[in-house]
């Protein structure tokens, strides 16, 4: 960001540290991680004005903000963040299908958070321990995501161990999104990390919370024809197009607009 005293306001955001010249950032992996964060951020942002209580509205917005910050850094590593967020077509997004699933009721949002934040914390933890192009972001974001996971776990306990109605809804949500969890452990092109190796730790953490909440770990398919699993290849579920339309329409209608 550079300005002169007379100059116009600088660009939309301070530039994140550019990768060192020579250390190529794998585009596919940056898009995969960045799109996961961007899309989930947008979904969580949809709760603004609709959350069950004010504190929870603020909490979901704060989690969305953390994710948006991660997305901006990741997308900026491989291109212009605004162009990537607002001008790509649906098939160019590389996020897992889990994060694009509609918010549903509050239990669905919490189930999505539990599955995803547990995965993301483990993933960032591994990236943070390495020295690849994503390590600086991962070292920072892993601490933020730990709070996201804690938030999701506490709500899973509350809802599972709450009333009959909240228990029923939480179980329904866990079961409904289960088919989207296999995809989390598919290989990510260029990431340089065995994502399948994250599964054991993920299952242990999720199982522990689900059991403590008096809920049952779903047993449905996760990796066959009836499961989700091609988001990383650009194949998305039907609600994603509508989400993108809402997310992108302002920017597309008024290119270059600012306020």
């Amino acid at each position: 960001m550079t300005t002169t005293p007379q100059g116009a306001p600088s660009a939309s955001a301070p530039e994140a540290t550019a990768p060192q010249s020579g250390s190529a950032v794998p585009v596919g992996a940056a898009l995969a991680l960045g799109d996961d964060a961007l899309v989930l951020s947008h979904r969580l942002g949809e709760w603004a004005g609709h959350a069950p209580v004010l504190e929870e509205e603020v909490a979901l917005a704060n989690i969305a903000l953390d994710l948006l910050g991660q997305a901006r850094v990741l997308l900026s590593l491989v291109g212009d963040e605004d162009e990537l967020a607002y001008l790509r077509e649906e098939r160019a997004f590389r996020n897992v299908q889990l994060v694009e699933q509609p918010n549903g009721d509050f239990a669905h949002t919490i189930a999505r958070q539990l599955y995803f934040s547990t995965y993301q914390e483990l993933l960032y933890g591994r990236l943070a321990a390495g020295d690849g192009p994503f390590a600086p972001l991962a070292r920072k974001a892993v601490k933020e995501v730990a709070y996201h996971r804690d938030h999701a776990e506490q709500w899973t306990l509350r809802l599972g161990d709450g009333t009959e109605e909240s228990h029923r809804r939480m179980q329904t949500a866990l079961t409904a999104l289960w088919r989207c969890t296999g995809e989390l452990f598919e290989p990510v092109d260029g990431l340089g990390l065995d994502t399948a190796a994250l599964h054991e730790g993920w299952l242990a953490l999720v199982s522990r919370t689900v059991e403590q909440a008096g809920l049952t770990l779903p047993t449905g398919p996760r990796s066959d024809g009836w499961s989700a699993g091609a988001g990383r290849q650009g194949i998305h579920t039907e609600p994603f197009g509508r989400m993108l339309a809402e997310m992108q329409h302002l920017h597309r209608s008024h290119p270059g607009a600012s306020w």
């Binding site: 550079t2 306001p9 070292r139 920072k140």
Partner: peptide
């Protein structure tokens, strides 16, 4: 960043570049 730029401009700096660094994490 904008506030830093302003105070340093006031101190006579013509060009102020504020870079965001992530490492080591705050």
């Amino acid at each position: 960043a904008a506030d830093i730029e302003r105070v340093l401009h006031d101190e006579g700096m013509v060009e102020v570049e504020v870079r965001t660094v992530l490492t080591p994490a705050w």
